[in-house]
Design a protein around this nucleic acid. Sequence first.
DNA 1: CGATGATTTGAAGCTCTTCAATAAAGGTGG
DNA 2: CCACCTTTATTGAAGAGCTTCAAATCATCG
Lengths: 248, 248
Amino acid sequence: MTELPPDLARMKDCSQCPIRHRAVCARCEPDELSRLEEIKYYRTFEAGQPILWAGDRMEFVASVVSGVAALTQTMEDGRRQMVGLLLPSDFAGRPGREIAKFDVTAVTKTTLCCFRRKPFEHLLETTPHVSQRLLEMALDELDAAREWMLLLGRKTAREKIASLLAIIARRASINGDTRGGNVEIDLPLTREAMSDYLGLTLETVSRQISALKKEGVIELQGKRRVMIPDMRTLMAEAGDDEDGGALL
Amino acid sequence: MTELPPDLARMKDCSQCPIRHRAVCARCEPDELSRLEEIKYYRTFEAGQPILWAGDRMEFVASVVSGVAALTQTMEDGRRQMVGLLLPSDFAGRPGREIAKFDVTAVTKTTLCCFRRKPFEHLLETTPHVSQRLLEMALDELDAAREWMLLLGRKTAREKIASLLAIIARRASINGDTRGGNVEIDLPLTREAMSDYLGLTLETVSRQISALKKEGVIELQGKRRVMIPDMRTLMAEAGDDEDGGALL
DNA sequence: CGATGATTTGAAGCTCTTCAATAAAGGTGG
DNA sequence: CCACCTTTATTGAAGAGCTTCAAATCATCG
């Protein structure tokens, strides 16, 4: 269930943490960090492992340190929709909530920086830097959710795929910048996870990826590595009006 | 553009406000309220009027006092998706953002309690009760957005309609409780607005409403008033596993 | 090398959309 | 108050896009 990688010991010290400046702790002063350090612990989940089921009691909230996790919702008959994709520095869990509302699953091997929920909630009330940062992150997520709603409600299968590739390219491209040509990304998601994200079947996902490949919009190296010769072409296929939502 | 109803003068005093205990000011102490009163002003918009266009400079954030407003996103070719439905006490606008990211439109005649943005942002940093409440509201909206994503991505047209009716019944039914039978609601939305909400065409909305009527799941009195003989039947049609998301 | 899981591809079917026409509801001015 | 016009809603028929079911291919791992 919980295997600590050998190098986690080093990370007791928040100042060495790779997500120190983007996570919920981003704005903390040294003394606030040390209060966080008191209630934190690391957990690692293998790809495919459940982190939390909807209905479970939530003992902790957490920051994703590395890896990718998914928030999903499942209907009685098995239809499934991803409703959150958690990348490093993203926050999981809702302060003030006892019972989880969504399933959380490790998509790739994932390490979480967990905070015991009750002490964290107390901390929210006493250290404004944490609650301010959490508000900011919640509003960012809300924006992302609204873009996602446009995708789910109005985009074609092809546009959905192009949008997802663009989103992943922007957040997780191998060389950070997504401006020029030759962006390369490692898809952290299986075809099935992509279909859960996009509200499609995995067959449709596969067909549309094949179509984009055939037309030269993307190139594949293996099933999971995607090369994007021209980001602008991909963005056009995504149907977004702006240059990638880079506006503030 | 902005006509003040005759009774707005009375509402200078926040303590008389109908949304006093649910809006962003819910947790404020009297002294905090008076700080809000200094930066607030009311504006009223007629049904159909734009409140803000995406790309506009945001001069204010606001609470919806009465009426219904919609957040929408539009693609170049005109495809449109609603991404937020703002009912009384809901908050509009994002502190920290200069430029609006979504269109905001009055669906019915709507009165807003506006706060000049810059002073409001300052207030957020200095009065924890406002920022705590705003965080709570943002997290609630995020939950709602995630339910909405399941609807958009995975539900059938029929389930979408039933879900929307159930959502409106829960939040705006004429007699507050949605337990027993004979819940009655006034649809604040046109068929077109419903289609924008649901990611459908307005024809499909109309057909599915007709179908639900024919099968006795709902009854219509005029086009806009809906009677729900048995809430449980409607919930079952909505495809939700729980009894209406009443869980915390 | 066989086995398991992931992915691709094919063919048929169904849901929802599109285009078109009709009907009902609201609003306005005579 | 009613004829007229505009907006909103309903209904029909044909077609497109995505899903479903099925089978084949590829990849990975013991």
